[in-house]
Nucleic acid binder design. Structure first.
Length: 580
DNA sequence: GCCGTTTTCGGCCCGACTGTTTTCAGTCG
């Protein structure tokens, strides 16, 4: 059972207990357990199999949640979860996703009006049954109806935004705001600054002498669909794309504290504030304060905030409360991979298969990126829709590459195009090219493109078999997920990683924003196992080479350093590593 | 329910905005 699945039991228990009006701290324990489990780089199931007492070493998991984890893995159910659902309808959980409806209102609506879900709520609001209930009036009915509309739209659009949508969108907003005179600092915070693979909303922070003109400009941005709230220091809008954007206006002396706070994650902040409290300090978005005297200690720079609680600065990508605080305490935050460490791209397509540009055009674009090499990895024939190359056409492409490299050499250019292919891993685990031709390639990338719905054991065997042939250097997009469109296929990633190690196959971090595959927790696991990662773009256009930035930051989320990445190597060392 | 540089009991992160209030609860991040 996947960690995410186990985690969702606890998140739902937290929601249900909250609706029930239980002790908020008990609620928090369950919610926190959900967060912790979801963020773990090791499979919870594998811990339980090995030695379940290992669970109690995970912070936030005590005796009671330990027992429930074991129960969930063994029985696929949880007694407490079942009992709570007997007391109230499951639709109330969905109600909480409607903006403006929290646990208290959900309970009230259920108790007074018998509301069992979002559809019921919509009917009740349209029939004006809400006004008259304590704390609810006419405005509330309008707001709730609007929120239900937004909720349904977002559900259709799969709720969270891809990095590649939110990132440019936020950058554009920042540029628009920056045009206003008087703005000194402006930064994007939140999950965007942490480079999460999906983004819930965007947070922008500014320092400015006068807040009012910034807020006015903010709510008059042409791309806005709706202004959700507007205050002196905080406003929220929803863009036409559905992306919610928050703006905070701050004093200079608070900027670092606010940046720290609004960057999150929530779990990281709770841990940091808890630490501060134990040291007699209080941290808010306005600064670090002495708990006793209430006196301002520091807050202008983010570094100062961390320093005040005895920590070195922590890169945003690590702030998930997955051990980064302990590392910072010991001064052992790893020197993370930097964009300029990348020396080349080992997975790109040309128009020979389903790309848009030629060998020359892709090579030129890679040189412009400052790379030393690029591997052309067009599809093999099995992926019919992509116009995959048969062995004859592949040989022809190899000759063209050699010819191109020869011309570069004559001109004294050190750049090199590698002969590669993205060879399909068939359903039976065999490869879509013969061993003979694979041997002649500099870089063979293996990938699954069909029969995604195999049973976990079969899929695992399929991939292990492909790796064992010795025909491939790199396993591309190892889980096959398409963010918001397709779930990862079922595969035992522990065994895939162990096999990668055994057969000397590298794993890919596919930087295509819809993929980001492997993800952050898998990457960290691979690093722990000593497997080198190839960060590649899977470019189908020369413009896609820029997507490497998403891969680099995802790698940083997985704690990867320069030494953990295959394509930080220079050409000579790379070729040695690619020998099969 | 979890946890321990004040603690095995008694705490648990903190503040803005909204709509309904006539001083605040609920929601959100």
């Amino acid at each position: 059972m996947e960690n995410a699945e186990i985690a969702s039991f606890f998140t739902e228990i937290a929601d249900l207990l909250e609706i029930k009006g239980e002790n908020p701290f008990r609620v928090r324990s369950y919610r926190n357990a959900g967060l912790v489990i979801e963020g773990l780089s090791v499979s919870i199931e594998s811990i339980v199999e090995k030695d379940e007492t290992g669970l109690e070493e995970i912070p936030g998991i005590g005796k009671s949640i330990h027992e429930k984890i074991v129960e969930i893995i063994k029985t696929k159910r949880c007694g407490l979860h079942d009992e709570l659902l007997k007391e109230m309808p499951a639709g109330l959980l969905e109600l909480l996703k409607v903006s403006g409806v929290g646990p208290k209102k959900a309970a009230l609506l259920h108790e007074k009006l018998g509301v069992k879900g979002v559809d019921d709520l919509e009917k009740a609001a349209m029939a004006h049954k809400l006004k008259g209930l304590p704390g609810l009036g006419e405005r509330s009915e309008e707001k709730i109806l609007a929120a239900i509309g937004n909720y349904r739209n977002l559900k259709l659009a799969s709720a969270r935004f891809k990095l590649s949508v939110a990132y440019p969108s936020a950058r554009k907003y920042v540029e628009y705001l920056r045009e206003l005179p008087g703005i000194s600092d402006i930064e994007v915070a939140g999950s965007l600054r942490r480079w999460k693979d999906t983004i819930g909303d965007a947070d922008i922070l500014v320092t400015c002498k006068k807040g009012a003109p910034v807020m006015d400009r903010f709510v008059n941005y042409p791309e806005i669909k709706e202004v959700a709230s507007k205050g002196d220091t905080k406003s929220t809008v929803v863009l036409k794309t559905g992306l919610q954007v928050d703006l905070r206006v701050l004093e200079k002396k608070s900027f670092g504290a606010a940046l720290q706070y609004f960057t999150g994650s929530k779990a990281h902040n709770i841990a940091i504030r808890d630490r501060a409290r134990r040291m007699g300090l209080k941290i808010s978005e306005y600064g670090v304060f002495s708990e006793k005297s209430g006196k301002f200690v520091t807050g202008e720079k983010e570094e100062d905030v961390y320093k005040a609680v005895g920590l070195c600065w922590i890169p945003p990508e690590l702030r998930e409360n997955r051990g980064e605080i302990e590392a910072a305490e010991k001064g052992e935050v790893p020197p993370l991979l930097e964009p300029e460490d990348i020396k080349g791209d080992l997975h790109v397509h040309t128009k020979e298969s389903d790309g848009a540009f030629s060998l020359e055009e892709m090579a030129k674009a890679a040189m412009d990126m400052g790379y030393e090499y690029i591997a052309l990895t067009d599809h093999s024939p099995a992926v019919g829709i992509t116009h995959g190359l048969d062995e004859k056409r592949l040989k022809k492409q190899m000759e063209a590459i050699e010819d191109f490299n020869g011309r570069l050499k004559k001109r004294g250019i050190g750049f090199r195009v590698l002969k590669g292919a993205e060879v399909d891993i068939r359903a039976d685990g065999t490869l879509d090219y013969s061993g003979d031709i694979l041997k002649k390639l500099d870089c063979a990338v293996g990938a699954v493109h069909s029969s995604f719905n195999m049973a976990k054991e079969d899929m695992t065997k399929r991939i292990l078999k492909a790796m064992a042939t010795g025909g491939i250097n790199i396993l591309a997009h190892p889980t096959g997920r398409l963010i918001g469109a397709r779930e990862p296929y079922e595969v035992d990633m522990e065994r895939v990683m162990d096999a990668a190690k055994k057969y000397g196959v590298f794993l890919e971090l596919n930087s295509y924003p819809e993929r980001l595959d492997l993800n952050d927790t898998h990457l960290r696991r691979a690093k722990d196992k000593g497997i080198l990662i190839s960060i590649a773009t899977d470019s189908h256009s020369k413009f896609h080479l820029e997507y490497i930035i998403y891969g680099v930051h995802t790698a940083r989320r997985g704690w990867l350093e320069k030494k953990d990445v295959l394509n930080t190597r220079g050409l000579k060392e790379l070729l040695k590593l690619l020998k099969r």
